[in-house]
């Protein structure tokens, strides 16, 4: 595979992880996380710092990113439990900004806007040219594992309870479901996945800085999940690659338009993406792969008359 495509496929996979993370809580439980980029950054910084300044093995860094992301998620949900549901969106938005500001200003720890460079990649020197291929496979492996986990949840009684909470949390309580426990667990797991995605990103590009974790990433992932299909893991994943493809192909497309400056081309690119996504949602309002109602298992006895 040409190295450019490989690069896109790897970043697309990382976006895929973020989309699965968002779909778990947004599609699954109706919780809005506008600070996805913040959890992504927490994971990237946790692993980036531990493996450079901290000298721990890369795999330990990834585990730490999972834990750090999940812990941040836990704190954010617990701090909003007494507030109405829409406040979670506001708090998460604020959280992501705080993470970015801390990363930019706590220079002793994060080296500020200079960012952290030289984040090690697994077997990077030994692999040489093949590093990108191997890393792509690592991302695919992470994607497969996370996909299987969230799909299991999606199809389990747990996922059913989450959906009920999404539709009407009060009636879900009447059904006996401890709404707070479900929401806290799901959000924590979702944030952990975003943290892992952040770590995978940092070790791939070997460089992270506050500017790489702008709210625009969160917007892209929302677009990915909405266009791919909210409430269905396969849809979220498809949406991530759809958005990635749009982002990259629009870049080539605008190059062909004569007589435009670089700034105009960048704006045109955003415009193209917006138009494409509006088209997708016009034609398929619930996404390309919409949520499905699983059919009830038919009774084996056949006593239906």
């Amino acid at each position: 595979m040409p190295s450019y495509l490989l690069f896109i496929a790897t970043i697309g996979g990382i976006y895929g992880l973020l989309a699965l993370s968002l779909n778990l809580i947004w599609g699954g439980a109706g919780m809005v996380n506008l600070g996805l980029a913040g959890f992504f950054a927490v994971g990237a910084y946790a692993s980036g710092l531990l493996t450079t300044a901290g000298q721990v093995p890369i795999v330990a860094g990834w585990m730490a990113a999972l834990v750090a992301g999940g812990f941040a998620g836990l704190i954010v949900t617990l701090s909003t439990t007494r507030l109405r549901q829409d406040y979670l969106a506001i708090v998460t938005l604020g959280f992501a900004e705080v993470v970015r500001l801390v990363a930019a200003n706590e220079i002793w720890l994060t080296r500020g806007t200079d960012g952290i460079s030289g984040i090690p990649g697994p077997w990077k020197s030994a692999l040489g040219q093949n590093f990108n291929s191997v890393y792509f496979l690592i991302v695919v492996a992470a994607l497969v594992v996370v996909f299987l986990v969230v799909r299991r949840i999606d199809r389990s009684p747990y996922g059913r309870a989450l959906r009920a909470i999404r539709e009407d949390a009060q009636v879900a309580q009447v059904a006996g479901k401890p709404v707070l426990r479900f929401k806290t667990e799901a959000f924590t797991l979702s944030a952990a996945i975003a943290g892992l995605a952040g770590a995978l990103y940092g070790h791939f590009t070997s460089y992270i800085a506050p500017d790489l974790f702008l709210p625009l990433i969160t917007v892209y992932i929302f677009l990915a999940v909405a266009s791919g299909g909210t409430g269905r893991p396969a849809g979220a994943l498809l949406g991530a690659y759809l958005v990635m493809t749009l982002l990259e192909s629009s870049r080539f497309f605008v190059e062909w338009i004569p007589g435009t400056t670089a700034v105009q081309r960048a704006a045109l690119k955003e415009l193209l993406i917006a138009v494409a996504l509006i088209l997708v949602l016009r034609l398929k309002p619930s996404g390309v792969l919409p949520e499905r109602i699983p059919p009830a298992p038919r009774p084996a006895t056949g006593a239906s008359s």
């Binding site: 959906r163 009920a164 539709e167 699983p294």
Partner: peptide, 14 residues
Amino acid sequence: RGFPKLSVFQHLML
């Protein structure tokens, strides 16, 4: 009241 997008079966199971 109920869960608009859940099926009859899912309501019962829940």
